[in-house]
Amino acid sequence: MSKRRPYVRSMDGWWKKNPYFIEYMIHESTALFVAAYAFILLVGLVRLGQGEAAWSGWLDALKSPLSLTCHVVFLVAILYHTYTWFKIMPITMPPIIVGGKRVGPEVITGSGLLAALVASLVLLGLVWRLAL
C-alpha cells in the first residue's frame, strides 16, 4: 500500500463565508426543532396510553420553565420553517401555468403563507370548539 496522504480540504465552517449558505444552514436546522417537538408529542401519546396519572404528569412537565422555554424556541424555529418552506416552494415545485403565463414566485409564496395562516386559525378554532 502506498503512503499517500492526499490533502483534503477541511469542511469546517464552509457555509459561514456566504450569507446565502448561512441562511440555508439555519433553515435546514429547523428540522431538529420539528423532530424535538414531535418526540415530545410522542412521549405525550405514550403517557396518555398509560392512564390518567401518567397523562397528568406529562401535562405538569409541560408547565415547567424549561419546557416553556423550549416551546418558545420551537415556535420561533418552526415559524421560520413555515416561512422558508413557502419561500423556497417556487423553485421546488413544477411550474404552474395559468392562462398561458407562469405563476410568479411571489404569488406561490404568498398563497402558501396565506394557507398557513388560515390553517392555523382553523386549527385554533377547532381546538377551542372541542374544548368548550
Binding site: 420539528v34 417537538y37 415530545i40 408529542l41 405525550g44 409541560l62 419546557s67 416553556l68 423550549c70 416551546h71 420551537f74 415556535l75 418552526i78 415559524l79 420553517h81 413555515t82 418552506w85 413557502f86 402558501g112 394557507a115 398557513a116 390553517a119 392555523s120 386559525l121 386549527l123 385554533l124 381546538v127
Partner: peptide, 13 residues
Amino acid sequence: SALFGPMLVFITG
C-alpha cells in the same frame, strides 16, 4: 408542519 406546526406548538406547549 409548515401549515400546522407553529399553532400546534403554541397550543400544546
